[in-house]
Structure formats: C-alpha cells, structure tokens
Design a protein around this nucleic acid. Structure first.
Length: 675
RNA sequence: GCCGGUGUAGCUCAGUGGCAGAGCAGCUGUUUCGUAAACAGCAGGUCGUCGGUUCGAACCCGACCACCGGCUCCA
C-alpha cells in the first residue's frame, strides 16, 4: 500500500445540537463550553431548576439527579415513591409559576468538595453525592441557589426566576430513565418540559408539534395503506408490505440495483438461515446471540443429548487449554497441548457432523463470505462487489420496536466489497459518492456521518490487534470524508471490533434522528473464514472487506421517507402515480378516459381510473386524501379538445393541456426520478 | 428487557356497574356533476386475551399479550 501523506490534525467536527445533547451525559462539557450556552438554553436550564423547586415543595422527600436543557426543552430526573402522572402537571406547573412570580435570584457559590459532600449527605441526596465524583479534581464545585432550592450546578442561568415568563412553560411527559443511562442502575422518573421566551413562541411550537404528529410514518402508513403489522398471527416487529407500500419497496430496489450495476457490483442470493458453525466462525456467537432469534433445533432427543455431552467435554478441554497457555508442562489430566488441540478438533468435527442447529441470519456478511470461498479467487477478481437485498432477522427487545423504524425482519440494501489494501481508498470513495448521489435524489440536506474509530490503548481487547491496518484505513476514511466536504463527526472508541465504521444519521422532517445507513471496514472476519486470494507474487492473501448499506433497510428507509415527504412522494415513487377522473360515467367520455389509462399503463405508469357517477368534487376529495400524485380530470371540453385537465396533489389545478404532452411529461418525470 | 400509559366497528372516538353507540370508510340503490366530500338505506363488535369480584362487568381487581411515551440497545 502506498503511504500517501494524510493531514495529521483532527478535522473540525461540525457539531449538531441533537448529537451534542445526546452525548452530554457521557462527555462532560467544560465550564467554558457551558458558558457559551445560548439564551434559550439558559432559560431552559433555569426552568429545570424551577421544576425541581416546585417538585420539592410538593414532595419534599424527592431525590434529585440532574436537570439539563435539551434541544426540545429540559428535563429533571427524580427518585420518588409517588408515581408522577400527567394529572400532576397542572399542580406542578402552578407551583412553577409561583416560583417565577417570587422572582428569586439565581445565586452562584463555590464550595469545597468536602462541604458539598457534607451538604448532600445531610439531605440524603445520594445521587448528587455520586455526581460529585464526576467533577474532575481541580475544577470548581459550583452551586446555584434560587429561593430555598440549592443545586450542584455549573450554570449558567438567567438572572432571576422572574426572567422566565409563566406562560412560556409547559410540562410535556413523564418517562423513566436509568441513573447515568445504565440499565443496571436504579430507574428514575423523568419529567420532560419545554420553555420559550413567551407564550406566543410556546404556542407556535405546540402547533408545530401537532403538525409533526400528522407526519408520523405509522399514521400515514395506515392512511395510505402502505404497510401493516399483525402481531397476533405474524408477530410483533414483522412488517407486512401492502400493495401500495410494496411499490415503494420495488422502486427503491430498482434504484439500488441500477446504481449498483453501474458501479460494477454483481448480485447474489443467499438463504435466510445457516448452521450454527457459520456464527461461531464469524464470531457473532455468543456475543450477538441475544440479538438473534433462538436457534431451530433439528436433532432428535438422543442426538441432542450426545451433542450436549460433546459440548460439555469441549468446554472442559478448552478450559484446560486456557489454563496451560503459559505453561509448557502437561496439565493435571496429563495431556500435552498437541493432544488437547487434537481432541478439541475431533470433538468439534463430531459436533459439526451432528449439525442440528440453524439460526435465522442477523446479517448477510457470513453468507457472502462463503460465496467468496466457494470459488478460487485471484487478485484479478478484485475488487469483488457482492450485492444482495438480503433479509435479516434480529430479535430486538420488545420495548425497542418502533413502527417501521425498528423491526425484527428487515431487507438490507447490502453489499460486501472485497478488495486489496491498495484498492481500498478508491472503493471507499466510490461508496461515499453513492451516498451523496442518494442524498441528492431524495433531497436530503440534513444528515451527518458518524465516523467511529478505535482506541489504540484497547488493541487486542475491544479491537483486533492490527495497529497498522487500523491506522491506514482510518486515515484513508478520514481523508475521503474531508476531500468530499461531507458533514461528519469523529467518535473515538466506537468502531466495530473488526474495523472503523461510518454511520449515516438523518433527521426526519419531524425531528426524529435515525441511523439510516452504515459503512464498515472489516479486516478481521474474512480472516476468521480463511478467505484468501492468490496475489501476483503467487502467495495467498486475505482480502479487506467493506460492508456498506447506503439505503440501510427498506423498512427504516421507507419509514424515514414517509416522514420526509409527509406521504407526498415524488411522482417516480408515488404508489398511485396518476388517477383519471371523469365528469360522470357517460359515453364517449369514459372510452376516451380509458384510452388514456391504457396508454399510460402501457408505459408502465401506475394509473387508476375513477369513472363512476360520483360528483367530481367527491372524486377529487378521494384522490387528494389518497395522496395521488397527478389527477387527470376529463370532461366534455377535454374530450373535444383532445386534452386533459391536470391537477397535482396539494398543488391544485394546473389547467388543460394536450393529451400527448401530458403523457410524455409524466413518463419523463418518472424515468428521470425528478424530485 | 426496564419504568409509566393505553387497548370499544377498517379508521377517529363517545360510553365509569344494568339493552353496544356516533361520524367517516364499506355495500346497495338513487343522483350525471368542471377541481377537497350529493342523498337514502343496509351491514358491521366475544368491548385485546384469560381468570376473579358481583344477581349483573366494556366499566372494578389480577395475570398475560399488544401498542404508545421514554430508558437501554440499534439498520
């Protein structure tokens, strides 16, 4: 590999507020960073204190955790035997308004660590005592007090509680959150609220939220008949694509197949399950087993007992082996290392012979690796770009399921690019260009790439011990990102164990953030499968593998698109592209309308006709509700002129145009995938 | 998985211990019309499931299931 010089300085990450907020609990902001909190954030931060003040007045034994501002507003976490419900909100809000009217000063003070600890211990505020430990030695321990309420807090705040306008505050919901976000810690009750400078701005925001709710993909999906869930017969998290949603799936797949064909990909097809050995070899078992559906057991009773005995024996031998890894002498059982290895291999062969366990695949890579292994490979075959719309199954925890965005069966726009180290940068750049192409087609301007890198201190533990490959691939990835001017942040220590990765985050129109695509470098798993190609020098080498899924999964991507477009898809994607509406059902009008329908359909336009007796107003209302992209209204005037009257969904009538012109325009718009 | 909430017709919802309801959608008629809803009739439900309390349960209690809001995890 040629060692091109790379910029040494870390790129300036273009920060995103949502992302920063999400990290805030993990990475402490410096005092300086906090000082830069803007006016609205300061206001919300103070509101969190006012909320805690009010809660303590009503429930004096509430234990406090933290109360930061967020992009949406603020929250405060409490531990309390009373369960908060929305019915408590008016009472709490009333008390908060009182606090603002008391116009208390937010007073800052500095305490020593011992004073602070003594103070919170005297109050029994155990979470606060723990939080004290987060503050690095040498950093000032500051407190803010308003009225009777004292909190460990770096600030900053507004000057007085009176700066918060009572009409600008609203409590939103009560939820739960683990202390420090760790599920092993106690669960606290979190009260979410929001605050604005005044009532008008708050009302505006509330209206916006109501609008956003209408864009929820679950709601629009049901309205438009795109998909359904049947948790009773099919199962939770298993989406059924209805005919209209099936159109979206087909169109996306067509787009991806065309794009990938032009980029030199080949397509493969693999089964939805594989034997246990696949996942012990790939390394996904046992670490990933919790996310996989439980295995299908194919053994008879007796065989299963035998397999269990063999597995026990194997575990014992492996334990012996581990115990003697540093010793040259024989173990207590009197076996040498060679004997042990031999015995283990023999048992594994017997277990494999028994077979018996199949797993639904949670990822496509192992199958693709076996396709790579199915034929001898030469360096001349590389790069080999193997694509598949593979269906994967992941047993997501029940609480994680969320409409189409989080499901248990998913179709991935997957591909694995096998290449040499020399080819890596070009391949990676091409993948990157593909992302940008898609962003353009879908008019995505709000996105961010998360570039996850390794921590050199944890090589051999969390990350495979290939320091040179890590360095090279990370440098190349970083370089491509900088060159392309893409909006990205670098996240240290979050790479996969087998290589650095990029996740593409997007924000749907209603502000939900999703990881839609992923792009991972893998220089470990091909080795585990013993994949090699014959190089120029006649030696066998292990290929690098790039795992990429620019459209992520159909499920999540379409869920995202529904919210992105609010169901108003561009013509090429629209499930029903054109509907022809006649004024009445009389001849020769209907014959004329049918001939237009036939012409469009012969050009593969998804067109329907509404030739019944309903009044035209009613037909239009139906079509608008169904979000039909283009309506062609046909009356006597159009028939005489050989014209059609065009109406576009949510854009209204566009006037009468010659039939041939309209047909040609529709066909061209679809072919060009106009936005 | 954890915490909290919810579950009544295809959809949106009313019904808080005494006969299961409305609007929209659907079906059948009538209506023949120029850009967001013509009229009438009909049909539609084991009130999430199972158990308990009660003379009597959609309603009260319990368990389970599913969904919703979060946490954790993630494409």
């Amino acid at each position: 590999m040629t060692n091109t010089p790379f910029p040494m300085s870390a790129p300036e990450s273009q920060s995103n507020p949502a992302f920063e907020a999400a990290k805030s609990d993990v990475q402490r902001k410096t005092l300086e960073q906090r000082g830069q909190m803007d006016e609205l954030m300061r206001l919300r931060h103070s509101c969190a204190h006012i909320l805690a003040t009010a809660v303590l007045r009503i429930w004096p034994d509430a234990l406090l955790d933290i109360g930061p501002p967020t992009e949406e507003g603020f929250y405060y976490d409490f531990e309390l035997s009373h369960r908060f419900t929305p019915e408590d909100f008016p009472k709490i809000e009333e008390e908060m308004r009182k606090v603002t009217k008391e116009n208390q000063v937010f007073e800052k003070s500095i305490k020593t660590r011992e004073e602070a600890r003594a103070y919170f211990e005297s109050k029994g505020q155990k979470f606060k005592v723990e939080r004290l430990g987060d503050i690095p030695e040498g950093e000032a321990i500051s407190f803010f007090q308003n009225g009777e309420f004292v909190d460990l807090c770096a600030g900053p705040h507004v000057m007085r509680t009176g700066n918060v306008k009572p009409g600008g505050i609203k409590l939103l919901k009560v939820a739960s959150a683990y202390f420090r976000g760790n599920e092993k810690n106690p669960q606290l009750q979190r009260i979410y609220g929001t605050a604005f400078r005044n009532k008008e701005e708050l009302d505006q925001w509330v209206t916006l939220q109501e609008e956003a709710k209408k864009r929820d993909h679950r709601k629009i999906g049901a309205e438009m008949g795109l998909f359904a869930f049947d948790s009773e017969y099919v199962g939770p998290g298993l989406a059924l694509w209805l005919p209209k949603g099936g159109v979206l799936v087909e169109e996306l797949e067509k787009l991806a197949k065309e794009t990938e064909f032009q980029a030199g990909y080949v397509r493969v097809r693999t089964p939805h399950l594989a034997k246990e050995k696949m996942y012990t070899t790939s390394g996904h078992l046992p670490y990933y087993a919790e996310s996989m559906f439980p295995p299908m057991e194919m053994l008879e009773e007796e065989e299963r007992k035998m397999r269990d005995r063999l597995q026990e024996r194997r575990a014992d031998l492996i334990q012996l082996w581990d115990g003697m890894s540093h010793a040259t002498s024989a173990n207590p059982a009197g076996l040498t290392v060679e004997q042990l290895q031999h015995d283990i291999a023999k048992i594994e062969a017997e277990i494999t012979f028994l077979g018996g366990r199949y797993y639904l695949k949670a990822m496509n890579c192992p199958h693709h690796h076996r396709i790579f292994a199915a034929e001898p490979r030469s360096y001349r075959d590389l790069p080999l770009r193997m694509a598949e719309y593979g269906t994967c199954y992941r047993y997501e925890q029940s609480g994680e399921l969320f409409g189409l965005m989080r499901v248990r069966a998913m179709n991935m726009n997957d591909a694995h690019l096998y290449c040499t180290a020399e080819q890596f940068a070009d391949e990676f750049r091409a993948v990157n260009d593909m992302y940008l192409k898609y962003f353009k087609i879908f008019g995505l301007d709000r996105y961010q790439m998360r570039f996850s890198t390794h921590d050199p201190a944890r090589l051999g533990q969390k990350f495979v011990n290939e320091p040179e490959l890590w360095r090279q691939t990370e440098d190349m990835v970083r370089n491509v990102l900088i060159e392309s001017g893409i909006n990205y942040v670098e996240v240290p220590n979050e790479a996969a164990f087998y290589g650095p990765k990029i996740d593409v985050q997007v924000w749907s129109a209603i502000g939900r953030e999703f990881t839609i695509a992923t792009n991972q470098v893998d220089f470990a798993v091909p080795k585990r499968f013993g994949l090699t190609y014959r190089d120029r020098d006649n030696t066998d080498k292990t290929p690098l593998c790039i795992h990429r899924a620019p459209l992520g999964t159909h499920e999540r991507f379409i869920g995202f698109l529904i919210e992105h477009y609010a169901g108003n898809f561009p013509l090429w994607l629209a499930p029903e592209q054109v509907r022809i509406l006649t004024l009445g059902d009389e001849e020769p009008l209907v014959t004329y309308a049918k001939s237009i329908l036939q012409e469009l359909r012969s050009q593969f336009v998804r067109v329907e006709g509404d030739f019944g007796t309903n009044p035209i107003k009613a037909k239009i209302a139906d079509a608008e509700k169904a979000r039909v992209h283009t309506m062609l209204v046909i009356g006597g005037r159009d028939l005489e002129a050989g014209a059609v009257s065009v109406r576009l969904h949510s854009k209204g009538p566009q006037g009468a145009k010659p039939r041939a012109e309209v047909v040609a325009d529709i066909v061209a718009s679809i072919r060009e995938r106009r936005p």
